[in-house]
């Protein structure tokens, strides 16, 4: 593995390997001494063009627990969000010798550009690119699902297993959700059945081609229209979406698509409730659901560190083979020849 840009970069065995390594990482995090010397001398740059303290801290903790040097680069504001700064920033990081660049960017595909445009030789980890993908979030969700649904909540008990046959409902603003995109890809790879539930306005045109089922009716899905759900993942919905007519009002959204007390009561006993955070309590999820015993929301956060440790370990610990190309699929790379400045003789 050279980069982690999309959940689609991982095949079934590779994904299981990440989860297995994450189990070992999680075990080390139960010890008194949590720090491992594994990535000593390696430099990990957290390149965040978008505010996300939670994700940045998670990656930072993961890198530091593995003894990597961590440089945080947070670029906020409209002037730096202009395109050329991505390239210039990448060149700066390259000059500083970054072995891995963890990038969060508002533009879909920005991590692909970093990985393929020839601006940096480091491994690129997509920490969320606009409405495209967030593969480490999907990995930590898969990790959480596997522990609960396959391993009977015993750490390590599910080692080697995938999520074959598990039914996962993902409900909310799928259209704008990088979490949903990565989860659909990864959970499908791991053998789970995913049902997306959203109002039609919040499902992308073209969703029919995704490897999952879709529904507009949360009640029907929870009642088992696609089989008994093993997990229900609620996606964040921004209240501002009502201004763009994605739904008439927050109240109506909550009534039709929120995980309220009534719907919580419809769930089978073993079903877990997940949320990638940050939550809008009272909109897509009720306090009762968020704080219930079924909720894995806090656990998801701690699993995030273990999964990110695993990703950094797998990307950075081995020999870097210069001949190995990037894992990106499809299309040509932008890169050097297109970028040459023209000779402007008159």
């Amino acid at each position: 593995m050279r980069h982690l840009l999309s959940a689609a970069d991982l095949g079934r065995d590779q994904a299981v390997q990440v989860l297995d390594v994450a189990e070992q990482m999680a075990a080390t995090q139960q010890r008194e001494i949590k720090k491992l010397p594994t990535l000593r001398g390696r430099t990990v740059v957290n390149l965040f063009f978008e505010d996300s303290t939670r994700t940045r801290i998670s990656f930072e903790a993961a890198a530091k627990r593995l003894s990597a040097d961590v440089i945080n680069f947070t670029a906020r504001g409209s002037s730096v969000s202009k395109g050329e700064s991505l390239k210039d920033t990448a060149l700066t990081l390259e000059a500083m010798g970054a072995d891995a660049v963890v990038v969060r960017h508002h533009a879909p595909g920005a991590p692909h550009r970093l990985a393929t445009a020839g601006w940096t030789r480091g491994s690129v980890v997509n920490a969320g690119d606009g409405t495209h993908e967030h593969p480490t979030q999907a990995l930590l969700d898969a990790f959480t699902l596997r522990r609960h649904l396959v391993g009977g909540t015993v750490p390590g008990a599910a080692t080697g297993a995938d999520l074959a046959g598990q039914r996962v409902v993902i409900a909310g603003d799928v259209l704008h959700s990088r979490v949903a995109r990565s989860n659909v890809l990864l959970l499908h790879t791991l053998g789970a059945h995913v049902v997306l539930v959203a109002p039609p306005t919040l499902l992308p045109v073209g969703v029919e081609a995704w490897p999952c089922a879709t529904s507009y009716d949360l009640d029907a899905v929870l009642e088992g229209a696609f089989g008994e759900p093993d997990a229900v993942m609620m996606l964040r919905v921004q209240r501002e979406r009502q201004n763009a007519a994605f739904f008439p009002s927050a109240r109506e959204y909550s009534r039709r698509y929120g995980l309220d007390v009534r719907r919580l009561g419809m769930l089978p006993r073993h079903t877990i409730v997940m949320h990638p955070g940050p939550m809008n309590r009272g909109l897509e999820i009720s306090a009762a659901a968020a704080d219930s015993a079924r909720s894995t929301i806090v656990e998801q956060v701690s699993n995030g560190v273990a999964v990110r440790m695993a990703v950094l370990y797998l990307l950075l610990s081995g020999r870097k083979d210069p001949a190995t190309g990037p894992v990106v699929t499809g299309g040509r790379t932008g890169g050097a020849d297109g970028a040459t400045r023209k000779d402007r003789r008159r």
Binding site: Q24, T28, G156, G318, R319
Partner: peptide, 21 residues
Amino acid sequence: LDVTMYRDDLRRHPTRSLGVT
């Protein structure tokens, strides 16, 4: 006792999977 993450030759080999401690 898995020692993989403590090895001094990690960078000389392809990435190793972890053993169990």
